[in-house]
């Protein structure tokens, strides 16, 4: 089977069909940026982008994603030139232990795209600023951080959005 990750195509031989996308990335491709925090879609540490949309890669079987463009945290930014969301996290100390961080960053990239398309969140009322602090918090609440670097992630994401 094949996986297209960060623009590169990989052929995986003998992959167990039960393998999650997360385990394929981590154990077979050694792309360990996506983390395993719960294996249940409850914490968001495994968040990657599937055709640009954020997903919990622990809840997806790798074999079902042979035609998708998969982007992991390793595929954001360029060497020496971080993605604006990565730069925001660096500038605002948006992490401590760093284990949820790749998931937070991928989630924020996907979230900003959703906002760009005008998608509402559960907290949105008509006429609301889709990037208010409350909106950012609501939209990022699928990504847990036990160090609780949340107050620093909000300005980090706002900076990345150019706001």
């Amino acid at each position: 089977m094949r996986l297209t990750v960060n623009g590169a195509q990989h052929h995986l031989v003998g992959l167990d069909p039960r393998t999650t996308l997360l385990d394929a990335l981590r154990e077979r491709l050694h792309l360990t940026g996506a983390k395993n925090g719960c294996d249940h879609g409850q914490c968001g540490a495994c968040t990657v982008l599937l055709d640009g949309r954020r997903v919990n890669s622990c809840l997806i079987l790798a074999i079902t994603q042979q035609d998708a463009e998969i982007t992991t945290v390793e595929g954001l930014g360029h060497k020496g030139e971080p993605h604006p969301v990565q730069q925001g996290f660096l500038d605002h100390d948006g992490f401590q232990c760093g284990y949820c961080t790749p998931g937070q960053i991928c989630s924020a990239v996907g979230m900003l795209d959703e906002v760009g398309k005008g998608w509402p969140s559960a907290a949105t009322s008509d006429g609301d600023d889709l990037l208010s602090d409350a909106e950012i918090r609501e939209r990022m609440s699928g990504n847990l951080c036990r160090c609780a670097a949340y107050p620093n992630m909000v300005p980090a994401i706002r900076q990345a959005a150019g706001r």
Binding site: R26, K35, L90, D93, F95, G98, P102
Partner: peptide, 25 residues
């Protein structure tokens, strides 16, 4: 001073315990 390991943590390069490739793991 910003965390020295910051760039590694935001890029996915920072390695945690279960992330060291091994032969015949």
């Amino acid at each position: 001073l910003a965390r020295l390991e910051g760039p590694a943590k935001v890029s996915g390069a920072a390695r945690y315990a279960a992330e060291y490739p091994q032969d015949h793991l």
